[in-house]
Design a protein around this nucleic acid. Structure first.
Lengths: 246, 246
DNA sequence: CGGTTTGGTTGACCGGGATCAAGCGGGGGG
DNA sequence: CCCCCCGCTTGATCCCGGTCAACCAAACCG
């Protein structure tokens, strides 16, 4: 039972059972006992500096990543060079699922602030899944939720007007931050206006103008990247307003 | 080893190993031997008449479905009643993956022509996956590809102009039909202009006008739902044209 | 077989958001 | 500490695609 202190330390450090994100991350909903089984799911951790990429579109796929802390954007680059932001990811969220289908990543994941991820070799995820039903179930749920999330964005882009999209974006951000114990009403945007615009299918000028308009309407307060939500109900009303009758 | 003739017949009829879609569907890439293992994956088949729905958003989730023949659309309805088409599905494609994450379907699947699906109880999919690595691998790939597909649509909606989107849509349809042994250049649209428009984030009038313009430009021939592609290269050029300099 | 309904086409006009342009301010690097 | 550059804001103008409307064709049904 005795083992070198250093090895113990390392295992502790990368063990899901010791992680304060276990309520949000892959092992969500597992009992303490079950969690022990996952303690060798993570092979190692990796720090990514702001502006650096965890992986690029086209690179071979080998592992999934769980955000430990920090903030990421995922981008897709089309044949003719246009770049589209396809998502933003924060602590506890899973990255890299796009790579499973074709053994290569299709999108690029870039840190928007200094971040750290848990590296989970995909072969290990599949092995453990086969032998451990709760992990299998949960992994399938995570994959499915990513599909549902993407379909939500499709609805956003396909059938909502610019102001509705931005309101929905702010409400979503606020909810995800709340789930992580941050303030629901006051936060710092990690991304630029351009990145928000790309994600929401509009130009950065439109994002900026809408922020200003929301401020005039006393829905939010904005100073550069600092946002304070004053009237979350109002934002929800904006995002739900089917274009009113003339 | 002997069993009633009827049971044998039934098993044959629903057996993946006997299905001519095995190259496209869930068992894709499995060897003949391996395929035998899947022969009890499908519990039954279900016919869906044109206009009827396989399942509705909000319904409890219990099974995945593989399209045997026919054509489906998936739609999402937002709180305020707006409907967004999130995808079109044809033979060999998998339906219902949105339901895994929350034990309820989030979207509604409606047949656009008389169709038939193979019903695969999800518990069975997970059981077989745990004991049969090739199925597990392939199932994960299918889930991942759905994510990648959705991200492609996000790029479409977020950063392409109407004519580029419609061109991309036609090219995509043509490719999928080709993979199924149909003509790449001549086909019948199963969906209305309104449904195409919803999927592509534009109004039906715009779809109609663009079809007419493509016809003027000798890229396609349209008569109602009948489409003939005259210049697939031209369509690809349209969809890739980053807005040209003035 | 005629009437009705549903889906498609086309025209005229309008407006939301893109584009072009100018100025500003704050944070990071020398 | 100061400067410079990047990101943000705001204004003026334009145009793509939405809206409203009229008409047509095919499918459907009694």
């Amino acid at each position: 039972m005795t083992e070198p202190a250093l090895a113990t330390l390392t295992r502790l450090r990368t063990a899901c059972s010791q992680c304060n994100l276990r309520e949000l991350c892959l092992p969500m909903g597992l009992s303490a006992d079950e969690l022990q089984t996952l303690d060798n799911l993570v092979s190692t951790r990796r720090k990514v500096r702001r502006g650096d990429s965890l992986f690029y579109g086209g690179e071979p796929f080998s592992a999934l990543y769980a955000v430990r802390y920090g903030f990421f954007k995922s981008t897709l680059t089309s044949g003719d060079g246009r770049e589209q932001v396809t998502g933003f990811y924060m602590a506890g969220e899973l990255l890299g699922m796009d790579g499973i289908g074709g053994d290569r990543h299709t999108c690029t994941l870039t840190a928007l602030e200094d971040s750290e991820v848990c590296v989970m070799p995909f072969a290990r995820v599949e092995d453990l899944s086969r032998n451990f039903e709760p992990l299998q179930r949960h992994f399938h749920r995570v994959l499915s939720r990513e599909i549902v999330r993407d379909q939500g964005v499709m609805m956003l882009l396909g059938s909502m007007r610019a102001e509705e999209r931005l309101a929905a974006f702010l409400v979503n951000l606020s909810q995800r931050l709340t789930a992580r114990g941050f303030s629901a009403s006051e936060f710092v945007l990690r991304m630029t206006r351009d990145e928000i615009g790309s994600y929401l299918g509009m130009k950065l000028e439109t994002v900026s103008r809408l922020f200003s308009r929301f401020q005039e309407d006393a829905l939010i307060e904005v100073h550069q990247k600092h946002v304070r939500i004053l009237d979350i109900g109002g934002l929800k009303r904006v995002m739900a307003q089917a274009q009113s009758a003339p």
